[in-house]
Design a protein around this nucleic acid. Structure first.
Ligand SMILES: [Zn+2]
Ligand SMILES: [Zn+2]
Ligand SMILES: [Zn+2]
Ligand SMILES: [Zn+2]
Lengths: 170, 170
DNA sequence: AATCAAATGTTATATTATAACATCCGCTAG
DNA sequence: CTAGCGGATGTTATAATATAACATTTGATT
């Protein structure tokens, strides 16, 4: 039995967490996977991935466009959307359907479809394998005779960090 | 133990199903709920709800706009979006986040947040309570210390009817 | 009649995403 | 070498989705 306070300290994005490590792990994994798969993590794609990993917040495509312009003067919407398409195909980022936004995937190379907990307050997205949920879903698909291609399991609310900071939940 | 063939016949949208009944039940429920709640199911809102219930397919806002114009000459995007906002607030329709589209809710008045099974082939959306999934999700939220406001649980694939018709799954 | 709130009308614009075609660049078959 | 090919990017235009802001209508209340 863990208390909420303990859970908060263990939170993967707790304020004490070493985010540089998040970034370097994500980029290393991405580079490795692309080599193995024989696909090109070009400079533009790499930069977009880095920009996405700037935080654990979901980021909008046009926000990425603004932020890549200093690095890539020629950048246009297609520049970003192509990079995003590539990164999604490779399972390196998630599209957050309910926000029309994007977030780095913490489990690239492992199972990619996960539960996303999206904080309305800080906009950060926590990814959880939620194996019990996935098992229950599989049973449901079997019962329904439904052949799954992809899943989006997105939950909006207040994350444990924000709940601790603000007692008034909007 | 049920076979897939049996499941297919029991499918809530099976080709034999009485869709007029779906529609009249949905509209009756909507009218009743709005009276009870003291909110107005105005002609425009009613028409939009009817248009959505034309099928079990997810419908786009601008498609609704085109289809309501013969009835409401003045209709503009805001006309539709306002009606959709109202219908969503009242739990009478679902927004399908991963399609930017809308579908009637079969369980208005009961619990509204459900698993949506979205067929890529026929575009129909099946709503399932998926209580085991919801329970597993609750446990997950508790563990994460996450305070839920809303959920979007959307799965894309091939429904049992389409799987039966086409052996080649794209 | 004056007032008010809710709904709708109206115009404009913001935001998100894709289509279509041109160019560049590294690789390789001839 | 060089012609051709495919993948990536550049470039222009436009499609598709959604909201903001303000005006008008309408029906209920005083
Ligand atoms: Zn981090
Ligand atoms: Zn938060
Ligand atoms: Zn029906
Ligand atoms: Zn189908």
């Amino acid at each position: 039995m863990t208390t909420l306070a303990e859970a908060s300290l263990n939170h993967p994005h707790s304020s004490e967490h070493d985010h540089k490590k998040c970034v370097s792990e994500a980029l290393d994994t991405a580079e490795h996977l692309c080599v193995v798969r024989g696909v090109q993590l070009t400079p533009i794609r790499h930069q977009v991935l880095e920009l996405i990993w700037d935080s654990h917040k979901a980021v909008k495509a046009y926000e990425l466009l603004d932020r890549i312009k200093p690095l890539q003067n020629a950048a246009k919407p297609a520049t970003i959307y192509r990079a995003l398409d590539f990164l999604m195909e490779q399972g390196l980022i998630h599209r957050v359907e309910s926000l029309n936004a994007f977030v780095g995937c913490s489990s690239s190379g492992h199972q990619h479809e996960q539960l996303l907990l999206i904080c309305k307050h800080c906009n950060e997205v926590e990814e959880r394998p939620a194996t019990e949920v996935m098992q229950a879903l599989s049973q449901e698909f079997d019962q329904a005779g439904f052949i799954v291609h992809s899943k989006a399991i997105e939950v909006h609310g207040i994350c444990i960090k924000c709940a601790a900071l603000y007692d008034d939940q909007d």
